[in-house]
Nucleic acid binder design. Structure first.
Lengths: 316, 316
DNA sequence: TATTCTTAATAAGTTTTATCGATAGCTTTT
DNA sequence: AAAAGCTATCGATAAAACTTATTAAGAATA
């Protein structure tokens, strides 16, 4: 049994197809066939059921794949250990970001980060929280930025910042007279909210998503914006809630429509999350330091109440 | 990087000597030299400091060895998974046993076990608790039988039985008149106790060890007995404490010197212990079932108070 | 039903690599 | 100073991993 064989098994299990798996692992299809046969022979089991189309894992195969993934992960961590020792921070790093954080946070730290750690090849992808969790599990993402807490056993979280929500209330709206608003004032029926993202637990729901595209040399991404929501709001379709950072680049005329909450302001907790196996921790540390440092100046609220998909948590 | 290379690194790290490590891994010394050099080159680090005699690990080397052990362990578990699937229980299994359990428990279950699981090649070794813990960590033992609880983070315990202590009190001893004795009666000054083993926490100390040799077809072992202690006691050198199972094969004349404790009788907890990585769990399960089943009939006390090296625990 | 496509297995040949035996070179021991 | 103990290096060899080309089997299509 070799690590290479285990990698091949993982590739075939993932793509359910020897030919595709061969491409992904940069070898020819016969190589995969032979190596996997050899492993099956050595263990005296069948890993794949080749009679099914597409190919399927056998029962033992499923268990073996779990363990194989574990071993391959752990073996990759050896390079991590070496890098850490050398103080080297580099290599490819795949970061997921939820749509409601993407457009505001990314421009704030990205330039800074790639200047500070030029050896890191950042690949950023906009994904929903569910997609992020799935990809952290199967190793397609190294880390992600999402609203927390997630209460997911195998995912660790490092808080980046707490971001208060701000009411965007057009003149026509019933709450426009109130200087500062309260959570109790909110009514789901005269509010505009986006589908994706996290949600107010108690009946008030959801923030956030649209489309927009963006490309650069060092990284790749796909993004969304809040503009549409504000515009719809201006059309008198209701008030909306904006995460604080989104209110910073709104135009002056619209700025007057912003109504802060009385403290404690509802807020979301935004964290850098990663798999508990803690692969590539140096880069994760570097990201955390960079982002937390930069955002610290931008958000200075003190008394907030965290809103999450899971639970309400007091913080100050 | 291959699993084989990691095995080689582990062997050299353990023996601090390429030549010896080569013997243990059944290859020649040049093979080790080259493979380890290759790994060092691939990672661009030095794993060993060859200027020191004997050879030493570098700082990175130490961290790498930890991770290497992890990977090798996890890779061995693959065979476990396959065995489990097939319902196959076999292979070499190294079991450590503390001296005070060896002579009484072993004869009770050994025959039974090797008959039931003939494919398992049991290698039994008598060891102190400290030696057992060390060897469970470095993988030289697969499991062990010892007095618990150990409160060791990386070792799991499965209780086999609770074994009460019985006073062996010669006619000359001050307590001989009492039919049943209490822990409060005990005095360290007129008691004979052995060095090794576990101990009464509150000042009263230690049980257990002598030497004796034993060999058979399916297994290998080295053992000790309690005879000496009883004989010394007969010579008027003080009373002693015997674990219950030891009192079963004492001669009739001496049996009259046995004095049970008033309930709750002090007792020790004897467990099957193994590393938290849970390698070879099928065999561990098999051992547990066999032993617990056999001992159940032999010990029928109901109200006992567990004595351990760590803490006092109530049980009934 | 025949034929075309897809995909994995097999075969044959090449390249790479793991290992060995012999030995050189360095250090420690006697 | 000689001997012993160790690791690195060299050259050779057998094993393995991989490639290209081909076959075989099953599914899709004509």
């Amino acid at each position: 049994m070799t690590i290479t064989q285990l990698r091949y098994v993982l590739a075939v299990a993932e793509h359910q197809n020897f030919t595709k798996a061969a491409e992904k692992t940069f070898v020819t299809q016969p190589t995969l066939s032979m190596q996997i046969q050899k492993l099956e022979e050595e263990l005296a089991i069948l890993i794949f059921d080749r009679s099914k189309k597409p190919i399927e894992l056998t029962e033992v195969g499923k268990k073996l794949v779990q363990q194989a993934r574990n071993i391959v992960n752990e073996s990759e961590r050896i390079q991590d250990i070496v890098d850490q020792q050398k103080g080297y921070i580099g290599g490819e790093f795949k970061l997921g970001v939820i749509p409601t954080v993407m457009p505001t946070l990314l421009p704030m730290f990205l330039h800074n980060f790639i200047k500070k750690y030029p050896k890191v090849k950042l690949k950023i992808e906009e994904l929903t929280t569910e997609a992020i969790i799935e990809r952290l599990h199967d190793g397609h993402l190294d880390a992600a930025i999402a609203a927390t807490p997630l209460q997911n056993e195998s995912i660790k979280e490092r808080v980046l910042y707490y971001e208060p929500f701000v009411g965007y209330i057009p003149p026509s709206h019933r709450l426009n007279q109130k200087k500062k608003i309260d959570v109790a004032d909110l009514d789901i029926d005269d509010m505009l909210l986006l589908e994706d993202g996290h949600c107010f637990r108690d009946g008030i729901v959801n923030l956030c998503k649209t489309q927009k595209s963006y490309d650069e040399d060092h990284f790749q991404l796909e993004s969304g914006s809040f503009e549409t929501l504000v515009k719809l709001s201006n059309e008198g379709l209701g008030m909306t809630l904006l995460p604080y950072l989104h209110t910073l680049d709104i135009n002056d005329k619209e700025k007057s429509n912003l109504h802060f909450f009385n403290e404690p302001s509802p807020a979301r907790e935004v964290s850098l999350i990663y798999h508990k196996s803690e692969l590539k921790m140096q880069i994760i540390e570097a990201l955390h330091t960079t982002i937390a440092g930069i955002v610290k100046g931008a958000i200075t609220f003190q008394n907030v109440e965290i809103i999450s998909p899971i639970a309400k948590i007091k913080s100050d």
